[in-house]
């Protein structure tokens, strides 16, 4: 009897370990998390406009029905990525999340102090390389270190009224999630005589 009780105690102890493991591993294995859900909207590496939240058709839970959203899943495996977008002159905000859904970076149109978005996302290793060999085209870019190789970006833009929807959607459609780091190849230097 006492022996069985010991096994039960052991089971409870093991249950505690399972509890901790489940809680810690869920962000990597959940199948309804934001990262997985965003895969529905199109291939990775490009922004996709999410349908406006309406009763019965909400692309993601608890998105503001008054804001237009564009999402992009990215991977840094093939090098840093550059995000460019020309945004309308109204409230917008952008947030970068890692694969597990942690918010790595966020800004809005006022903190950005400009109406266009120009971000470079890089891992710490890629960032070191970028610092060693600066790319001139990135002078004006905001460079962000991402502590993961996969993640997603969500742009939110305020829609003032239904007539404004097209303007906002046009801006979001033109948003680039994998813009080239160098806008144009540097012209060859003339040989010194």
């Amino acid at each position: 009897m006492i022996r069985t009780l010991l096994y039960v105690l052991g089971g409870i102890f093991l249950g505690g370990i399972i509890h901790i493991a489940v809680v810690l591993l869920i962000p990597d294995f959940a199948n309804r998390d934001a990262w997985t859900s965003m895969g529905r909207f199109g291939p990775d590496g490009a922004f996709h406009i999410l349908p406006m939240s309406e009763p019965g058709t909400e692309p993601l839970p608890y998105l503001d029905p008054r804001l237009a959203h564009a999402a992009c899943r990215f991977s840094l495996d093939d090098g840093p990525i550059r995000i460019k977008a020309a945004m309308p002159d109204e409230f917008w905000s952008l947030a970068v999340f890692d694969r597990r859904g942690s918010n790595v970076y966020s800004l809005n149109d006022r903190t950005a102090e400009r109406t266009d978005i120009d971000l470079v996302l890089a891992t710490s290793l890629q960032l070191t390389k970028l610092r060693e060999n600066p790319v001139e085209a990135l002078d004006q870019s905001i460079v962000i270190e991402i502590p993961a190789t996969r993640g997603f970006v969500l742009i939110r833009a305020f829609v003032t009224d239904s007539a404004d929807t097209n303007r906002v959607n046009t801006a979001l459609k033109a948003a680039q999630c994998s813009a080239p780091l160098e806008t144009a190849p540097a012209p060859p230097q003339p040989a010194q005589p």
Binding site: A95, G101, N103, L154
Partner: peptide, 26 residues
Amino acid sequence: GSPDADPYSKAILARSGEVPLGAGEG
């Protein structure tokens, strides 16, 4: 949604599929 969130909040967020507002958004 912040990296400082406790593991329970992170797990709950992953299960709900929400994308919370970042500190720079609201």
